[in-house]
Design a binder for these strands. Structure first.
Length: 577
RNA sequence: GCGCCUGUAGCUCAACUGGAUAGAGCGCUUGGCUACGGACCAGGAGGUUCUGGGUUCGACUCCUAGCAGGCGCACCA
């Protein structure tokens, strides 16, 4: 039940009728015509810009057109209280209270689908996110992208799309060799008491490797760890398993579960890289050539060499990209192209990649490869999550990989909790840097929007509890015909915006709109709640310790929306706090 | 040098694919609890939306030229 869509359809129908009679000239497209939420001060419920959009084609001032249109809209609609025409040519519609009675009745009847866009075409999406290297635990830097990907998925699922969540495991290449060696040194440290070579910059210094080493020793008693060359392959597998186990548990405490983990190593082993390069070569997107040094100052070390290149410049990239290293191994990019071919072969409508800000420069080349492979544009959508600035005691907190003093997801969740982390990380557009202030996120007060929204739900639960009613049960609507007051309609109007919120969050992949909306809805509710202090008739529980059916349904409608929204965000809605 | 992101109230950020007199929280300030949960509410002050051009009925939003901050720019992944 999207009242904005409903009235937009109605207006478009009126336009078509009027144009058939020759009373109106329509432009080629009706896309520019919208129904919107009018600013509060106009005291109206829906507004439309139709008169202004049609003004040019008809060579008439918007106000004149509006007069005709208003007559047509008013006709046969007994739910409209008033229509006004405002300044440049907006048409503002104000509904009678009965409109809102019908509205709430309908959303209570269809509570499972309220907010879902049932008209749009449903797609099959693949969302790739996190994909952190399997060499250690997730840290705070991974967190925002992880949550972004998870909630984008939730929004799409809520809107009845099909979604697969995928993690690409980079278990191939030099870093894995270094990682395995590091584990090996830790094993020697444990078994042979040899000190770990701390000054070797290629190695991973983190203490978590001691746990990995110990676990591997404990569960592989038969292995002779003396000769690295003999066991390196097996140790690589075991080390990656350890890392993945840790990463999965980190994701788990964040409330994230991927459907698939795809191994880069397997793609390489299965010759998928050769196949995709063959394919691109046939299409003349791959050639042997050299890359020129960039214009910048410090390129003395630049070595030009002939190598296998992908012609990403054909698709708008600023240089072609290397596919093969000098030792003959594939570059990360090459196997990623193979991975994207693999994705395309699985016939998704859209591929979505969630990347961190430090990988934004990678987008052009990978989307070029997808364009080349699919022959389509916009098959791949990349979302970038900007940096998180950590703030502790009012000071920026810098993490350093070298010192190994980065904050892990485990630390973070232990300190501030899963729900607060998810809500705060989502409360801003992914395009802006985020200040994550440990102290205020931990605070259980008005400084923390999570608790503000949860408090709204808890208050509603409390009313139901006092009445011995179950908030989770459906409510019957027998003999239900009440009118709501202006204060209640104000909240119902907010509820009517929920489908619009979902629509834009889903179509633009901007989930931050949901926490922002929930905060606004909660705010309206708290206002209403406080009215009860002065006006007893605004209280939910009356002197006879019961509640009127319209208020009960009213509460139910609010809590339904809060609950769906919080479910999408992936946080709890406790009954008591 | 190039690419991407950002620039809105003192601070942190919204603004519904170009809509109306740009909105919230924090902070400052004036009030409100014997109450269904005060983890709350009502009011006030606070703005040349970084700058200059352009597009049009209309620009925080689009184009263009700058300025400032962040991220990235080899065969690391």
């Amino acid at each position: 039940m999207n009242i904005f869509d409903k009235y937009l359809d109605k207006i478009k129908k009126i336009l078509l009728d009027l144009s058939k009679n020759g009373d109106l000239i329509l432009p080629d497209k009706l896309d520019g015509i919208t129904t919107e939420i009018p600013p509060v001060k106009f005291n109206s419920d829906i507004s439309t810009n139709v008169a202004m959009v049609l003004s040019k084609a008809n060579n008439k001032p918007p106000i004149d057109l509006a007069v005709t249109l208003v007559e047509a809209i008013k006709k046969d609609d007994n739910l409209i209280d008033d229509i006004s025409i405002i300044k440049p040519g907006f048409i503002n519609i104000k509904f009678k209270p009965i409109f809102w009675t019908n509205f709430i009745e309908e959303i209570i009847k269809n509570s499972k689908t309220f907010g879902v866009n049932l008209k749009e075409k449903k797609n099959n999406y693949l969302v790739e996110f996190v994909s952190a290297n399997p060499t250690g635990p997730l840290h705070v830097g991974h967190c925002r992208g992880a949550i972004l990907g998870d909630v984008i998925t939730n929004v799409l699922l809520f809107n009845k799309h099909k979604v697969t969540k995928e993690y690409y495991v980079n278990d191939y290449g030099n870093q894995i060799i270094n990682f395995t060696k590091s584990v090996y040194y830790r094993i020697r440290e444990i078994i042979y008491k040899e000190p770990f070579p701390k000054d070797n910059d290629d190695l991973y210094p983190g203490d978590y490797l001691i746990d990995f080493a110990q676990n591997i020793i404990d569960s592989n008693k038969k292995i002779d760890f003396n000769d690295y060359e003999k066991i390196s392959e097996e140790l690589t597998t075991l080390s990656i398993e350890e890392a993945l186990k840790l990463i999965k548990s980190n994701l788990n405490i964040l409330g994230i579960n991927h459907d698939n983990f795809i191994s880069e190593k397997k793609l390489v082993k299965n010759q998928e890289v050769e196949k995709v390069i063959d394919y691109l070569q046939k299409k003349a997107f791959v050639y042997k050539g050299t890359i020129k040094a960039p214009e910048g100052e410090n390129n003395e070390k630049w070595v030009e060499r002939e190598q296998l290149l992908f012609k990403s410049t054909d698709f708008g990239d600023d240089k072609d990209r290397a596919l093969q290293k000098s030792d003959g191994a594939w570059t990360y990019f090459a196997s990623d192209v193979a991975y994207h071919k693999n994705k395309l072969d699985r016939k998704f409508d859209y591929l979505i990649n969630i990347l961190g800000a430090d990988h934004a420069g990678y987008i052009k080349r990978i989307s070029s490869s997808v364009d080349a492979l699919s022959g389509e544009k916009n098959k791949l959508i990349c979302k970038v999550s900007q940096l998180v600035k950590l703030i502790k005691e009012n000071k920026p907190f810098k993490m350093s990989k070298r010192k190994g003093d980065y904050i892990t997801v485990d630390d973070l969740i232990k300190e501030v909790g899963k729900d607060a982390t998810r809500f705060i990380m989502l409360n801003r557009s992914s395009d802006v840097e985020l200040d994550f202030d440990f102290d205020s996120v931990k605070e259980k007060s008005k400084d923390n929007p999570l608790y503000y929204v949860q408090y709204c739900y808890a208050r509603i639960s409390s009313v139901f509890r006092h009445l011995n009613k179950d908030l989770n049960l459906d409510i019957k609507l027998d003999n239900y015909k009440f009118e709501y007051s202006n204060d209640e309609i104000k909240i119902l109007k907010k509820i009517s915006e929920w489908p619009k919120c979902i629509d834009s969050a889903s179509s633009k992949l901007e989930p931050h709109r949901i926490p922002v909306y929930l905060y606004e809805l909660a705010s309206e509710f708290h206002s209403y709640w406080n009215l009860g202090k002065q006006q007893p008739e605004k209280r939910f529980i009356n002197d006879q310790k019961s509640i009127s059916p319209n208020k009960l349904i009213f509460l139910k409608a609010i809590s339904n929306v809060i609950k769906s929204g919080m479910d999408i965000v992936g946080v709890d809605t406790p009954d008591k706090m």
